[in-house]
Simulated scan of single mutants.
Amino acid sequence: MQAVANIRLLRHQKEMLKTIFQIFFKWLRPSKGAIQLSKLQCSNHNILPKEKIVLAYHQWLQCHQRYHKTIAPHLFPLWSYPNLFKLGEKLNLPLHKVLNQGCKMIINHDIPLNSPLNTKIEIFDMKDLPSKYRINQRITTSTKDHHDALISEIYAVILKDTKSILSKKRKSSKIDTDSLTFLARKKIQKADAQSYAYLSGDINPIHLSQKIAKLMGLKGSIMHGFGLFAMIYEILKENNFNVTEIDIKFLAPVYLENDIEVFIQAKSENQYQLRVLDSEHKVTHLGGSFKIKH
């Protein structure tokens, strides 16, 4: 049975919660300054992820036996998000309208548990589009022994018209899976969204409240994109893929209490395409690729 994280874990997320409340406050009192679409970067040193959060996160994903004295790489938001948002504030954009659209990880070395980490955070690519601002970010995590142990990139947009984009209708024709290899089927539960919220500090109500999600143009509460990313990564690990690089786009929200199915397709000896579909094979929720080391 999958473990459910305790709400009391939020007391270990003071920095993240402080960041969220600052974003909410700025939404109520928006800045009148000009938008600054400029490249930014900052460095942060001696970051020590809280062991209690790390272990509870591994327990939730049932991957604790895979990470002996190390940290799952997809936990990088834990030690980078508060500083990433602080950097993003300098753009003077409405950060309460941010929507993550995907993530890339290059895993060069293990991340040790109970060892200080250093990060270099960059906002390196920005575009002003008709309905949104596209913002790409990079987090380089260094350990005591390795300068670039983990390189993570986040693809995000900041919406100009939140409701119309979130409620955008998608095609519902049947997706052909004959050329794909089935890996796993998983039910995404309300408890998953609650657990990820308590573990990450991301208490955005579209993941926790049906009413607010519907006010935002959604059909109901949806799972966190990075929570799904973590689940998919661990499904690959369960199937003995030694992942060294993974690049995933979040294409359609996954509503809670619905099933997803994970498919792959070999493109070369060490590279695969990845697709995550709904149970009826009408919606592609996530798509991308990953590389492995034999």
Results as ranks from 00 to 15, higher is better:
Ala252Trp: 10
Glu122Val: 13
Lys211Gln: 11
Thr140Gly: 06
His281Gln: 11
Glu238Cys: 03
Lys120Ile: 15
His224Thr: 00
Ile121Trp: 09
His45Met: 02
Phe124Asn: 13
Leu91Arg: 05
Phe21Trp: 15
Pro73Glu: 08
Asn204Ser: 12
Phe124Glu: 08
Lys174Cys: 12
Leu286Tyr: 05
Gln41Trp: 06
Arg134Val: 11
Val254Pro: 06
His224Phe: 02
His147Ala: 14
Thr284Trp: 11
Pro49Met: 03
His68Glu: 08
Glu269Val: 07
Asn242Cys: 09
Asn44Lys: 08
Glu261Ser: 14
Leu183Cys: 01
Glu15Asn: 14
Lys174Trp: 11
Gly88Gln: 14
Ser200Leu: 00
Lys168Cys: 07
Ser173Ile: 15
Met223Thr: 02
Phe250Asp: 13
Asp202Trp: 02
Gly102Arg: 00
Ala156Pro: 03
Tyr67Pro: 00
Lys39Gln: 06
Asp110Ala: 08
Lys39Ser: 15
Pro130Thr: 09
Ile47Cys: 01
Arg29Asn: 14
Tyr272Met: 02
Leu17Ser: 09
Arg134Gly: 03
Ile71Thr: 06
Val254Phe: 03
Lys132Ile: 05
Arg11Asp: 06
Met216Asp: 08
Ala56Leu: 04
Thr162Arg: 12
Gln210Ala: 14
His64Trp: 06
Lys249His: 12
Leu236Pro: 08
Arg11Ala: 12
Lys39Thr: 08
Ser289Ile: 07
Phe124Trp: 14
Val157Thr: 05
Ile222Tyr: 01
Asn44Pro: 09
Asn136Ile: 14
Glu234Lys: 03
Met1Gln: 06
His74Arg: 02
Arg275Leu: 14
Gln101Pro: 08
Ser131Thr: 13
Gln101Ala: 09
Gln36Val: 07
Glu234Ser: 15
Cys42Ala: 15
Leu95Glu: 02
